[in-house]
Each structure stands twice: as structure tokens, then as C-alpha cells.
Simulated scan of single mutants.
Amino acid sequence: MDELGPSRVRLSWRLTNVESGANNNDDDGGGRYYVATFDNDGTHRKVKACTLVVTIPTYAIGTSLDVVLPGSADLFGRGKSDNAKISGGVSYPPVASVTVAYPKSTFLDIDLADGSGNLRDLPGFGMVSTRSAGLRILATLVSSSLFPGRCPMEYNLLSCTIGGARDEAVGAMSEDDLVAVVDGDLRTMLLRPEAPHPKVLGLEIWPRTIPQYELGHSDTMTELKRMEDANDAGGLWVCGNYRTGVSLTACINFGYNQAKVVAGHLSSKRRG
């Protein structure tokens, strides 16, 4: 942030429109440029740029790119088919995170077969659940084992994730119901029947989370690439984890690689 300077990063600004124009100023790279209009609580600002890399989620793009990429609003706004799990746009299912704590004494008193210790101490990173087991929890991190000092020694602290593409009903559930589901699954997996109600230390619901690479996603990305290629101005890229991979590593690698693409584009414009 310090290297970029105070005027380089702006928070809470929403992209509302992008248009293109032409100039003959070699210092600006010559040729075409973009004017991006942003809104912040009723305050508008226009930013002129030779290149534009859009990395916001597709559901937030709206009609902002339709002038420079005709049809993009329709492409990203298409929903799933009612008869098949086919997405014309990009699906972002809801996910909830529930953090709970239980006394260690209420966990099953079992020595683990791999010799790592007793289950009550939860000696591990966490676990991933399967739908075939009849559980709704997607994954559980044992925060008290990963980060000592997060809770009293006589407690275990667990961060549970629930929801996703196969359980979108989570987005409409109340906080009490979410806690009840998580508590029920943990009782099935880890707890003794007489375990008390958990201490709920955190609960967050994200209505839209990781984009899904569903059936039809490849066609959507192919159409997006066609729109970019048809943009005569050039220098406009619509990117994001829905296109380059959802992992942290994929996002970081994309950032480095895309920076080289932008630099190369600007260099070629100046040489031209």
C-alpha cells in the first residue's frame, strides 16, 4: 500500500460504467483509452486509463461493461436452468462459518488408531465431511490445535463451514438454525450425547462465495474471451478467480502474469 501511494488505492468505490475514447498523446500510450466511472455513496469520479483489468465478481459487474463489451451484462446475469445444473453465468453459492467451543471432557474418549493421541485433544488440522455420511458441515478446522491460546486449555475450539453449491438453503437459514445444524453434525462425529450446548464465538454468512465451475462454465468463459477479442480498443481484461482458479496460489500467480501482460501491451502501444 505504501509503495502504491495514497492516491493509488481507493476503497468502497463501485464501478458503474466504462467507456472508451481516442487520443493522440504518446505519453498516454496513444490510441484508445478508457474512462471508468465510480460511485461512492453518491459521489462520482471518473478515471482515465490506457488499460483496464476488471477483477470484481461477475455478479457485481452488472451493466458497467456493456458499452465496451456488448452483451456482457446478459452473459453474467444468466441464471441456472430449472431442469439441469447448467449455469449460463457464474454461480456463487452461499456459505456460513460457525465457530463453536466445547469442553474437552465432552468429546469422545478414544485413542486414535494412528497413534497421534486421544480424540479429546483433537490432535490435527481439521477434517472434511462427505455428503454420503449424512452431514451438512463441509469442513472443520480445529482452531485450538492450530493456534494455541485461542481458548482455555480445557476447551476445544472448532471453526465449521456449511453451505456451498449442494446446500444453498444455508443462505436463508437463521443463525440459531445454523448453530443447531453444526452442533448436530459435531455430535454425530466427535461429541458424547450429553455434551452441553456449544459456546458460539462467531457466525458469519456470506451470500455469495467461491465461484462454481459448473456444466456450461467453459462456454461462458469462451464467450467472454470472444467479447474481449472483439473489443477494438484492446487493453481490457475481465479476470477473476472464476476464470483463473479459486486457490490463493492461482490468484497470486495470475496477478504476476497479468501484470506482465499489461506491461507488454503498454510497451507495444508506445512503440507503435
Rank of each mutant, 00 (worst) to 15 (best):
M1N: 09
D2K: 13
E3Q: 13
E3D: 13
G5V: 12
R10K: 14
L11H: 08
L11R: 13
S12C: 06
W13L: 03
L15D: 10
L15N: 07
L15M: 14
T16Y: 00
E19L: 07
E19W: 01
G21I: 09
N25H: 07
N25S: 10
D26Y: 01
G29P: 11
G29E: 10
R32L: 00
Y34I: 10
V47M: 07
V47K: 06
K48P: 00
K48S: 12
P57N: 08
T58I: 02
A60W: 12
I61E: 09
S64M: 09
D66I: 04
V67P: 04
V68M: 10
D74K: 04
L75I: 06
F76N: 12
F76S: 02
R78W: 00
G79Q: 14
S81P: 02
K85M: 05
S91L: 12
A96C: 08
A96E: 10
A101L: 03
T106H: 06
D111N: 15
A113P: 14
S116W: 01
L122G: 03
L122R: 13
F125M: 07
L146A: 03
P148W: 07
G149C: 11
G149T: 11
R150C: 05
C151K: 03
L157E: 13
I162P: 05
R166A: 00
E168W: 00
D176K: 15
D176G: 02
D177A: 10
A180W: 05
V181Y: 01
G184H: 09
G184L: 03
R187D: 05
R192D: 09
R192K: 15
A195M: 08
P196C: 05
V200E: 06
E204Q: 14
E204L: 06
R208E: 12
P211D: 07
M221A: 02
K225S: 09
E228H: 13
E228C: 04
D229M: 08
A233S: 13
W237V: 06
W237Q: 05
C239V: 13
N241A: 00
G245P: 12
L248W: 02
L248R: 04
I252D: 00
Y256F: 04
Y256T: 11
Q258W: 00
A259E: 11
A263Q: 14
S267W: 08
